[in-house]
Design a binder for these strands. Structure first.
Length: 606
RNA sequence: GCGCUCGUAGCUCAGCUGGAUAGAGCAUCGGAUUUCGAUUCCGAGGGUCGGAGGUUCGAAUCCUUCCGAGCGCGCCA
C-alpha cells in the first residue's frame, strides 16, 4: 500500500530549481553591471542569495545583492539596487521588481513560473528536489554504534533514526554516503558480557546459578546465548580456565548480540553498509592502534608526561604517573589525552583515533559522527586527533542527539522497568510503529531535548504531525480514487503512469491564489533539501512536510464552502485534470520527503 | 573550577548559517460549520528573543560578560 519514492534516479540531471534559476539571473545581471561599471575583478558574488521573503506581501523572492555588493561596487545600496532592479524587470520569469528597505530587491514572479515548476515536479517525479550539491563526494556517517552487550533500548533510537535520515538526506542531495556502525567489541564491557553469558551457559547445562552477581549483565536476553553455547560445546568449556573460554564465549555473545541489534534496527528500517570492529584494529600482526601512535609520534604529537589531577569531583585512587599522551592541546583541545592505560592496553580514545584514521585512509574527507548527549565532552579531542592525523584535510562534524523523555498521556514513563532492564527499542516500535517513532524523532532539532508521547503519536489529529503528514499523502490518493469514479475514469492507478498522464494536463488553468500558493510551497522543496543537507539537519524536512501538508489540507477544506475551489469539478474534466496534476505534485513531494525521513507514505489511513 | 549544549508567546517548538513589522501548533477569547470517505475552518489577544554591552547599513542569529538549566571533566566505553 505504501508508495515509496526511493527508486534510483541516477543519471537523471538534477533540476535547476527555481530559486537557483533566479539566483543565476541575478548573478548575470550583476556581472553585466560589473563589466559596465568597472567593478573590481575579484568581486565575490557568493554572498548574494535569493530567498523567500519573511513576509509574503513583499513578493515571491528577495535578493540582498545590492547590499552585499555595494561596498565593492563603491555604490550606495539603494542606488545599486535600483540599477539591478531595472535590468531584472526585463526578465521573462519576473513580473514585478521593487526596491525596499535598505536595498532589498523584491521579485514577484509571473504565475507561469510556478506552473513551469509544477511541470518539473511532474516530469522528475521522485527525483524532484534531488540535488547535485554533494557532487558525489564521499561522506561517512557513523551512527548507533551501541555496545554489543544487549538489545537496543529507547535511549538509542533517536541517534539511530537521526543518523539514518541524515544519510538519506545527504544521498538525496548528491553525496555518496556510507552508513557505518562501530562495534565496541574490545573493551572491558565485552569481557563482562562474556562472563555473564558463561553463567547462562552453566545454567543451560542444568546448573542452578542463583542470583546474577552484581557487576554482570542480568538480562534474560543472554539465556539464548548460554543455550547456544551449550549446544555447540557441550560441557567442554566448563573444564577450561577463564583465559581459555573467555574469547570463545565472547565471540559467540557478541555475534548474537549484534544479530539482535541488527534485528532491532531492521524494525526501524535501518541498515548499515559497514560494521567496523574495534577489535580488528588491534589484531596481532596488524596493530593499527600502534601504527597510528607511531604515526603521531613521528609528527611530534606524542610525548611521555603526567597530567594535572582533574578538577571537579576528586578521583579517589588518583595516582600521578607518567604516561603516553597525545598533544591534543596543540589542536584545540583543553588538555592532552592519555593513550595507554597503566596495564599497557590502549585507551578507548587511542583506538578511536586509529578508527578515524582508518576512515580517512578509506578516502573519506567528510566525516559525521552521531553521538548521545553524554559524549559531548569527547568532541574536541576527536576533532583534535583528526586535525593532527589529516593535517586539516578532513572535517568531522559531530551531531549530538539530546535525551528523549518517554511519556504516555503526558505522564513520564520510567525508562527501566526494574534494575538493569530497560525499555527496549523493540517494545516502543511494536507499540506505536516505526513511522511514528521515526517521524517524531525528527520533528525536533537534534540538540534539543525531545518529549515522545506514546499515546499522542498514534492519535489521528492535527496535533499529531506524523498522522497529519501521512494523511496528506493519503488524502491525495483518495482524491485520485474519487476523480476516477466521477470525472477522469482513465486516470491510471500506478504512480508512474499516473504522473505521466497528469503531466499532459492543462496546468496553466491553475490560477487561484490558493493554488499558486501551494505551488510556491512545492517550489521551495529543492531549496529546503539543500539547506537541510548542508546544515546536517534532517528535521527541516519534517517541518517542511508538516507545512506542506497543512497548506494542502487547508485548500481541501476551503472547497467545502467554496465549491469552485474543489479539486474535482464535475462539469470540467480539463480543470479537474489540472488540479489533479497539482495534487500529484503535492503527493510526489510528500512521498519524496517522507522517503528521506524513512517514513511510509500510505495511500489510505485505515 | 573548566568545557560543551541549551534559554524565543501561558505551554510545546520553528526561525532557511546576518535581513525587512520575530512565526506555527496547542491553550485562551470571538465567530463559522451535516464532510470531494477518513475527527474542522476563519479571526483576535498574547514577546524588553534570559540580562547587559559590542561588531555593521541590519543581530534571536556573530563576539564579550553575567544569570539560569542539562551533560561531561586522567588509566569508562
Amino acid at each position: 500500500m505504501a508508495e515509496q519514492s526511493a527508486e534510483k534516479t541516477a543519471g537523471k540531471s538534477p533540476s535547476q530549481h527555481l530559486f537557483a534559476a533566479v539566483l543565476a539571473r541575478v548573478h548575470a545581471v550583476c556581472a553585466t553591471l560589473a563589466a559596465e561599471g568597472g567593478w573590481p575583478a575579484d568581486i565575490d558574488f557568493s554572498r548574494v542569495v535569493v530567498e523567500p521573503p519573511r513576509d509574503a506581501t513583499h513578493g515571491d523572492m528577495a535578493t540582498n545583492a545590492a547590499m552585499v555588493l555595494a561596498k565593492d561596487a563603491r555604490a550606495k545600496p539603494r542606488e545599486l539596487a535600483d540599477r539591478i532592479a531595472e535590468k531584472l524587470r526585463a526578465d521573462d520569469l519576473i513580473s514585478a521588481v521593487d526596491v525596499a528597505g535598505p536595498g532589498f530587491i523584491n521579485l514577484t514572479l509571473k504565475p507561469s513560473a510556478w506552473i513551469v515548476e509544477l511541470r518539473s515536479v511532474l516530469r522528475e517525479g521522485a527525483a524532484y528536489g534531488q540535488s547535485a550539491a554533494g557532487a558525489a563526494q564521499k561522506v561517512n556517517v557513523e551512527y548507533v554504534s551501541a555496545n554489543p552487550t544487549g538489545p537496543m533500548h529507547v535511549g538509542h533510537c533517536r541517534g539511530a533514526v537521526f543518523g539514518d535520515a541524515l544519510s538519506n538526506l545527504l544521498q538525496f542531495a548528491g553525496f555518496e554516503v556510507t552508513r557505518e556502525y562501530y562495534i565496541n567489541d574490545a573493551g572491558a564491557q565485552v569481557d563482562v558480557l562474556a562472563r555473564s553469558a558463561f553463567l547462562r551457559y552453566r545454567e543451560a547445562l542444568g546448573e542452578n546459578i542463583g542470583e546474577i552477581p552484581e557487576g554482570l549483565y542480568p538480562g534474560d536476553y543472554l539465556k539464548p546465548v548460554g543455550e547456544a553455547l551449550a549446544q555447540e560445546h557441550g560441557d567442554k568449556l566448563k573444564a577450561m580456565n577463564e583465559a581459555a573460554w573467555l574469547p570463545v564465549v565472547r565471540n559467540k555473545a557478541i555475534a548474537m548480540m549484534m544479530d539482535a541489534i541488527k534485528g532491532d534496527l531492521a524494525a526501524l528500517n535501518i541498515q548499515h553498509e559497514v560494521f567496523f570492529s574495534e577489535r580488528s584494529l588491534i589484531e596481532a600482526g596488524n596493530n593499527k592502534v600502534a601504527e597510528t601512535i607511531d604515526f603521531l609520534r613521528a609528527k611530534g604529537d606524542i610525548y611521555e608526561g603526567s597530567l594535572p589531577p582533574p578538577k571537579g569531583k576528586p578521583v579517589e585512587d588518583y595516582e600521578d604517573r607518567v604516561q603516553t599522551l597525545f598533544r591534543a592541546t596543540a589542536y584545540g583541545d583543553d588538555v592532552d589525552r592519555p593513550l595507554i592505560k597503566s596495564d599497557g592496553s590502549y585507551t578507548y580514545f587511542a583506538s578511536d583515533i586509529a578508527y578515524h584514521k582508518n576512515k580517512y585512509d578509506r578516502g573519506f574527507r567528510d566525516l559525521i559522527d552521531v553521538w548521545g548527549a553524554d559524549h559531548g565532552g569527547y568532541i574536541k579531542r576527536v576533532q583534535a586527533a583528526i586535525k593532527a592525523i589529516t593535517g586539516g584535510k578532513a572535517a568531522l562534524d559531530v551531531k549530538i542527539v539530546q535525551l528523549v523523555r518517554l511519556l504516555r498521556n503526558g505522564e513520564q514513563v520510567r525508562m527501566s522497568k526494574r534494575s538493569g532492564d530497560f525499555i527496549t527499542l523493540r517494545e516502543v516500535v511494536d507499540e506505536v510503529g516505526s513511522d511514528a517513532v521515526r517521524f517524531m524523532m525528527l520533528f525536533r532539532k537534534n540538540d534539543a531535548v525531545l518529549d515522545f508521547d506514546l499515546a499522542k503519536v498514534i492519535e489521528q489529529s492535527r496535533d499529531n504531525a506524523v498522522f497529519y503528514v501521512q494523511y496528506g499523502h493519503a488524502r491525495g490518493h483518495s482524491i485520485f480514487r474519487n476523480a476516477r469514479e466521477e470525472v477522469v475514469p482513465d486516470l491510471p492507478e500506478e504512480a508512474g503512469a499516473r504522473i505521466a498522464y497528469l503531466a499532459g494536463a492543462a496546468v496553466e488553468r491553475l490560477t487561484e491564489g490558493a493554488e499558486l500558493d501551494l505551488l510556491k510551497r512545492l517550489a521551495v522543496y529543492p531549496r529546503t533539501v539543500e539547506a537541510a543537507a548542508t546544515a546536517h539537519e534532517p528535521h527541516r524536512i519534517a517541518f517542511y512536510l508538516y507545512d506542506l501538508a497543512s497548506e494542502f489540507h487547508a485548500l481541501w477544506t476551503k472547497g467545502r464552502d467554496l465549491p469552485h475551489l474543489r479539486f474535482i469539478i464535475n462539469h470540467d474534466a480539463e480543470l479537474t485534470k489540472a488540479r489533479l496534476a497539482m495534487v500529484q505534485g503535492v503527493v510526489s513531494v510528500l512521498a519524496s520527503g517522507l522517503a528521506v525521513l524513512g517514513v511510509h507514505a500510505p495511500t489510505e489511513m485505515r
